[in-house]
Design a binder for these strands. Structure first.
Length: 859
RNA sequence: GCCGAUGUGGCGGAAUUGGUAGACGCGCAGGAUUCAAAAUCCUGUAUCUUCACGGAUGUGUCGGUUCGAUUCCGACCAUCGGUACCA
């Protein structure tokens, strides 16, 4: 075969791999398991199999991990590289409703399509480990693991204000609601008190925060998790309501500002406002509460910076001042800048040292009482507030204390006086874990007549979803499973006739909280996974996916994993040792002056600009997301059909480093089309015959053309190898292209050793063409397990280099020079080369960097 | 507002510890081949200036350190992403 036929070759090798399974990972105990091989677990975030299929953006991450997986196999690792489907959840159900079909059917169709598309990309997954979170043999164990959380007391049922989405007809977790709209579908949501199943993720807040130190994750993602957990160290302070023995407790991070309190402010929802001693002003206050409560969350948010509030007419007393102090009596206000479900729903207002309190005091004309001054002795400015650390003033015996020490000592005094204590709070809320939807894991719990919770036994698992003709969500917020009364009332289990099942289902995140563990042992029928399997694979060595999961999946999975760790089910406290975020593949699009999108087939290039064909107006060329609505989605199937999957793999790799966003360009791919063809022809002569020299063994010492080839090859191997350190495989492809430009001039001299190393190095990137060339150059082994080729240092050295000669840092001349010429000779050489330019000037200094440059400093 | 990331030719992007800015590829221009086209091959391609040799400018902006800065430091600007009364 002399012409490169991608269709034929790729089909041939994909069929062969399907049979021989070189990417099959072996567990201890499996036939052929080799315990001398180290393990390596590399995982892609598994996809939700959407109806629109895979686009080239998804492919880029999968191609990246595949390149690494293939190289690791060549380096002698037992590589676990699996794929599966995150198939339960809202999007899958929404899609089914839209298609008017059952989600079981659409999910199966979609995952079939995804599997087909992924296989066309030549990805070396161990397909024998494929999983689907919506299949009973998988969710049986999701339910079992949920029961572990229940056993630990991490599951509770409570009537709390939750996010309700009318459009989706279900509640959502805090993490799933962005700016009062659903993360999925962007529908408006509202706060509504409802009884929900909740997971006590707050119990793990400290460890989720602390263990971030021990994992190799991008700084930005760690920071996002840290902010989401939102740890604040401070104190709780009790203020006694004047004329009663009742106390109002506040949380503050700045107990050092305690002597600057000029008001105590309650959230409108705070029930304490109803029990305050009433006064003539109270009715006005009630109005305010009513008005605040009737505003939607969004309105309240929209009014940020617009301070409002009302005086209740009641007062509290200062815990550390006595009655004679003018600041002893503190008025109680109600204001909606205080939020009910953080801290205690009440704050001590210190306008001199907190931005919001300052604004509030300005708006309501309350006194501002500075108690901290800057350390550098500057006068406090009454027109702004000072929020930094400093030194206390007007604070009784604490005056002159630095703020850091004052915080500790004031807190101690509060403890002594039984008026407070040190306290740490977290922003993270418990995880609302139930959904009023059909397509999710049923809870493995029963309720008795008195609403007591009774966990299901292992033998009753899985609690299967009943088949329902009409699975659509109910308008009244009641879960659709409530309509399956026989199932709710356990008609299938007469022995449990007094109990009821739970009608809510788990959210889509449940299945993805542990799928990486199931991949270690996917066919286990006795447990979620065996000890042997998890103790062997331990944790995911490299996890690759988009950055959008920073506070949802990646936080939830860490939480569940820590619970499993506490049960001794897994050997590591963290699931993902190293995390890498791949960039998005974007697309070019055009828009006219009015920013309206112009279809690309109505645009033509005119020199370096673009004009709209129909109007002859210039249009702007810009980069945007790939989206169906923009009609700019590139389907990998089409690219593969035209150019082959190796070319697609190379192009997606060549576009840029794995972690950045890169725009797809249909023109750009032609460079890789040419490269593949030229690489193929490197091993064939003009008449289509394999080069004769390829059967000759390497010489004992390289010289002439063979030396030139050997040098180019070693440079290429070194750069390829280094590209794995920074996930910038684009430089590896560039190295291959440079090598090809150099070597193709001398291709008749390539010997068998050189050809082998070259083909091996290309294999992770373009496995089909590499395998075909491997075979046609006379090799019979599986490339997957051939040792990864390493460069030899001595062939990286050249005999000569270009000596750069500069004056004051500006390059003046370049001179071919023998390598390792001594310093003094270089200086002399440079001097004579720049004779004319150095005439009449004084050389103040001469810097010589051997094998690089000479710089004259002149005046 | 706060936090994070990123700014390099017409475009995607390269540049060890500070040491030739623009590798590689696309695009573009010219040429070869061809009846012609496609494909392929060769040459050129940061900007300004010069017939040319050459010279000047140039890695978002302004400044600093240095013999020498895309790289280090300071201030600012722009774009993208995250987050928002968290006391």
């Amino acid at each position: 075969m002399s012409e490169y036929n991608h269709t034929k070759i790729e089909k041939k090798w994909q069929q062969k791999w399907e049979q021989d399974k070189p990417s099959k990972a072996l567990n201890p105990g499996d036939e052929g398991f080799d315990d001398t091989k180290p393990s390596y677990y590399i995982l892609d975030m598994f996809p939700y199999p959407s109806g629109s299929g895979l686009h080239v953006g998804h492919a880029s991450g999968y191609i990246g991990t595949d390149i690494i997986a293939r190289k690791k196999r060549m380096e002698g690792f037992n590589v676990l590289h699996p794929m599966g489907w995150d198939a339960f959840g809202l999007p899958a159900e929404q899609y089914a409703i839209q298609k008017g079909q059952h989600p079981r059917k659409t999910t199966d169709l979609n995952s079939d399509n995804f599997r087909k598309q992924l296989k066309l990309l030549g990805l070396s997954y161990d397909w024998d480990r494929e999983i689907d979170t919506s299949k009973p043999d998988y969710y049986k164990w999701t339910q079992w693991l949920f029961l572990k959380l229940y056993e630990k007391g991490l599951v509770y049922k409570k009537n709390v204000p939750v996010w309700w989405c009318d459009e989706l007809r279900t509640v959502l977790a805090n993490e799933e609601v962005i700016d009062g709209r659903s993360e999925r579908g962007n529908h408006p949501c509202e706060r509504r008190p409802m009884t929900q199943w909740i997971l006590k993720i707050t119990a793990y807040a400290e460890r989720l925060l602390d263990d971030l130190k021990h994992i190799d994750w991008p700084y930005g993602i760690k920071k996002q998790q840290q902010d989401w957990i939102g740890k604040s160290i401070g104190a709780e302070v009790d203020f006694t309501i004047e004329g009663t023995k009742e106390k109002i407790r506040v949380f503050t991070t700045r107990p050092d500002t305690l002597f600057g309190v000029t008001a105590l402010v309650l959230a409108p929802e705070n029930p304490l406002s109803k029990t305050l001693p009433t006064t003539p002003q109270a009715p006005e206050c009630e109005e305010y509460i009513k008005a605040a409560m009737s505003k939607s969350e969004r309105d309240r948010k929209a009014e940020t910076k617009q301070m409002t509030g009302a005086f209740t007419g009641a007062y509290v007393t200062h815990p550390l001042l006595d009655e004679t102090s003018p600041h002893y009596k503190i008025p109680i206000y109600i204001a909606d800048y205080v939020i009910a479900d953080y801290g205690t729903g009440a704050v001590m207002s210190v306008p001199a040292h907190d931005e919001r309190d300052f604004l509030f005091a300005k708006t309501l004309n309350l006194p501002i009482l500075p108690v901290i001054i800057p350390r550098d002795g500057e006068e406090p400015d009454l027109d702004s507030c000072f929020t930094d650390e400093g030194v206390l003033v007007n604070s009784g015996k604490y005056s002159m204390y630095p703020t850091e020490k004052a915080r500790v000592d004031i807190t101690s005094e509060l403890v002594l006086k039984n008026s407070g204590n040190a306290k740490t709070t977290y922003k993270i809320r418990d995880w609302v874990f139930s959904r009023q939807r059909y397509w999710g894991e049923p809870f493995p719990l029963y309720l008795d007549k008195n609403d007591n919770i009774i966990p299901a036994n292992l033998k009753d698992l899985p609690v299967e979803l009943p088949p329902m003709e009409d699975f659509t969500p109910s308008a009244d917020g009641s879960a659709p499973l409530n309509r399956a009364q026989d199932w709710i009332n356990l008609k299938d289990k007469p022995e449990l006739k007094d109990l009821k099942r739970v009608a809510d289902t788990m959210p889509g995140w449940a299945g993805s909280c542990w799928y990486f563990l199931r991949f270690m042992d996917p066919h286990n029928t006795k447990g979620a996974f065996s000890n042997t399997a998890v103790n062997y694979w331990k944790q995911v060595d490299l996890y690759v996916g988009g950055a959008s999961h920073a506070v949802m999946h990646l936080l939830y999975a860490r939480f569940w994993h820590k619970v499993f760790f506490d049960f001794g089910l897994v050997p590591e406290p963290e699931p993902f040792k190293k995390l890498f975020n791949q960039g998005m593949v974007t697309a070019f699009a055009f828009r006219d002056k009015t920013k309206r999108l112009v279809p690309s087939d109505d645009v033509e290039k005119s020199g370096q600009n673009y004009i709209q064909k129909s109007t002859k107006e210039p249009v702007e060329h810009f980069v945007t997301k790939m989206a169906k609505s923009l009609n700019n989605v590139v389907n990998p199937d089409d690219v593969i059909k035209d150019h082959g999957c190796d070319t697609l793999r190379l192009y997606e790799t060549f576009m840029g480093p794995l972690d950045i966003d890169k725009p797809w360009s249909d023109d750009g791919i032609s460079g890789c089309v040419r490269f593949i063809k030229r690489f193929w022809h490197l091993f064939y002569d003009d008449s289509g015959q394999i080069l004769k020299n390829l059967s000759s063994p390497p010489p004992t010492e390289y010289k002439g053309d063979e030396l030139t080839i050997e040098r180019a090859l070693n440079v290429c191997l070194k750069r390829t190898n280094e590209s794995f350190d920074g996930f910038n495989f684009n430089t590896a492809i560039a190295a291959f292209m440079e090598m090809l430009n150099e070597v193709s001039k001398h291709k008749a001299s390539i010997n068998s050793s050189q050809a082998q190393r070259l083909i091996k190095a290309l294999f992770p990137f373009a496995p089909h063409i590499a395998s075909e060339l491997w075979e046609s150059t006379g090799n019979t082994t599986q490339l997957d397990f051939e040792p990864w080729p390493k460069h030899i240092d001595k062939y990286l050295q050249k005999d000569t280099y270009e000596l750069v000669i500069s004056i004051n840092g500006k390059v003046r001349k370049k001179l071919p020079t023998a390598i390792n010429t001594p310093k003094d000779q270089l200086e002399a050489l440079a001097k004579s080369a720049l004779e004319d330019k150095l005439e009449g000037v004084t050389i103040r200094k001469c810097i010589v960097v051997p094998n690089k440059l000479v710089n004259f400093v002149v005046s």
